[in-house]
């Protein structure tokens, strides 16, 4: 037997699959967003609000949502109620989506036919594993909600380091929590100087416009 040195990240095969998927989607003009957060931070609510608002701006805009969950389909049902196309993906006990699972879901969704043009992947609710697995998305967006606390960048650094945008949501609840928004921003930027930060409330719609404008800009630059 001979020794072969590899010195490769254990997830390098996933990284390669993700890169190929990202390129294929781009060629077809499909923009994929990987939305990550802890359970209950407000992913489904933010997606619903964003879809409603974007459709108001651009009535013909086709948006789809892939809801990844270990079980249940309540999130997909909530999206369908808005009249947007959605699919529920069960991860079979897995705590994250990887590039192969994302490709399979996109196939089941019929996305490779070129519609919808903007697709949200609501990842499994958890701040650890989804950060490690590249799904092939063009944009990684994370949500941190006020009740979770401003220390989360210190506890889950990889998620903050990997995300293109940080949405701080449930801002309407600010009077009830001692969340220090400056400290949260400072800690997130120490890990990732380029991260875009959007404080919003999906309930009162405060701050949603800035986030939506940024998102459309990124989608157009694909």
């Amino acid at each position: 037997m001979k020794v072969i040195e590899l010195n490769k990240n254990a997830l390098s095969s996933n990284d390669a699959d993700a890169e190929i998927l990202r390129g294929e989607l781009k060629e077809k003009g499909i923009f994929l967003i990987n939305l990550m957060s802890a359970a209950g931070s407000g992913k489904t609510t933010l997606i619903s609000r964003t879809i409603t608002d974007l459709r108001e701006r651009e009535p013909g805009l086709e948006i789809g949502v892939m809801e990844a969950d270990i079980a249940s389909d309540v999130d997909a049902a909530a999206i369908e109620a808005l009249g947007a196309k959605s699919i529920q993906v069960h991860t079979g006990g897995c705590c994250h989506m990887d590039a192969v699972m994302t490709r399979e879901s996109l196939e089941a969704f019929g996305a490779f036919e070129g519609s919808p043009r903007i697709i949200f992947l609501e990842n499994v609710g958890n701040l650890i594993c989804p950060a490690e697995f590249d799904t092939g998305a063009h944009l990684k967006v994370m949500i941190l909600s006020l009740p979770e606390g401003d220390d989360k960048p210190l506890k889950y650094p990889l998620m903050f380091a990997e995300s293109d945008a940080l949405i701080i949501t449930k801002m309407d609840a600010a009077p009830y929590f001692d969340f220090d928004i400056d400290a949260a921003c400072r800690r997130a930027k120490a890990l990732n100087p380029d991260i875009a930060v959007f404080p919003v409330s999906a309930k009162t719609r405060d701050g949603m416009q800035e986030w939506e404008a940024w998102l459309l800009e990124k989608a157009e630059a694909l």
Partner: peptide
């Protein structure tokens, strides 16, 4: 200070294999 960050310890690297 609480402003600290992880330098190493989060990895999972395939170092080598023995094979024929």
């Amino acid at each position: 200070s609480g402003e600290t960050w992880l330098v190493q310890g989060n990895e999972c690297v395939i170092k080598q294999i023995e094979a024929e």
